[in-house]
């Protein structure tokens, strides 16, 4: 009983075309990809074009309400407490926000994942010490750690990334280790061993592809967490220092005005939500698209829509 799933002729169409057709099959994922592309473009080119306007104060435009085009299109989302255009600030802030969130998440995922792989595969001392390391980090309040480190070091983007990455390592480490312990006993790993595959090959060819979707899903959830953690550090005054801006900092700066000028916090907050939601949707799509057993869902959907 061979299942008659339509098989993509991956070789003739090329990988890019296949990916594109799979992406088109999931409308939510497509929208998410578009939003993320815009965010990335803002992060890369925003400060270049709008850097000046974003820090230009216009006291007559203090807390200017949104959807009023009288002061120019930059004020379409309103102005902040110093009369700076919110739209420009959100675009410019994308760079720092993305740098911190991406940096911290990637660093903690790589380090945590690698340590987890080592801990899961080692039957010796490393397998015992590494999980304890995670316990040590977890038993120490992460915000307190951040406060101490940033108090001693200078609060820069780089240092914030380091601090946030360290506090998030245990999540990846424990997940990876737990999954590895289970996968290690699976038959196909044994089959690879019988074939004479090296440890390296077993880990990277057979184990990693199975746990990667889990790690990516956690990473996208963590993305939101890191953005908010960064904003709470900024709120305490040890995060990003003005005039540098991030979305999180904008949300916390707008908090005192919440009753009179809601838009100060609302728009950057919306940006955070859209970015994380998009990442989540995209990671969900990726999990399905990367799994040969699930891919048919997208292929069937694609045929219907196409």
């Amino acid at each position: 009983m061979v299942q008659t799933t339509p098989l993509r002729e991956a070789r003739s169409k090329g990988r890019l075309a296949t990916t594109w057709s799979l992406l088109c099959a999931d409308k939510f994922a497509l929208a998410a990809a578009i939003i993320l592309t815009i965010v990335v473009l803002c992060a890369v080119f925003g400060p270049m074009f709008l850097g000046e306007q974003a820090s230009h104060q216009n006291l007559r435009g203090r807390n200017a309400p949104p959807f009023d085009l009288a002061k120019g299109w930059l004020y379409v989302l309103g102005g902040d407490q110093l009369g700076r255009p919110l739209l420009a600030r959100i675009v410019v802030a994308a760079q720092n926000t993305m740098a911190i969130a991406t940096g911290a998440v990637l660093a903690s995922m790589t380090i945590g994942g690698t340590l987890g792989l080592i801990a899961g595969n080692s039957r010796g001392r490393a397998g015992q010490i590494i999980p304890r390391l995670a316990d040590v980090i977890m038993s120490f309040p992460s915000l307190l750690l951040a406060v101490i480190v940033l108090y001693m070091l200078e609060p820069s983007v780089k240092n914030i990334i380091i601090v946030l990455a360290i506090t998030r390592i245990p999540v990846y480490l424990r997940t990876t280790r737990a999954e590895i312990l289970e996968i290690r006993e699976r038959m196909f790993v044994q089959a690879a061993k019988v074939m004479g595959a090296s440890e390296f090959r077993i880990v990277f060819r057979h184990m990693l592809p199975v746990i990667l979707p889990t790690l990516i899903t956690i990473a996208t959830l963590d993305f939101a967490f890191v953005m908010l953690a960064e904003s709470s550090l900024s709120f305490l005054g040890i995060g990003i220092q003005p005039p540098e801006i991030t979305w999180g900092l904008m949300v916390s700066q707008g908090r005192p005005y919440l009753t009179t000028a809601w838009w100060l916090s609302f728009w950057p907050g919306l940006a955070i939500i859209l970015a994380t939601l998009s990442l989540n949707l995209l990671s969900n799509w990726m999990r399905v698209a990367l799994d040969p057993q699930q891919r048919w869902r997208l292929e069937i959907g694609g045929r219907k829509n196409g």
Binding site: M187, F188, Q190, A191, A192, V194, M195, H206, L290, D291
Partner: peptide, 14 residues
Amino acid sequence: QMVFQDPTQSLNPR
């Protein structure tokens, strides 16, 4: 070489 009991598990699904 070896052939295992359950091919569903002994073949890497990915």
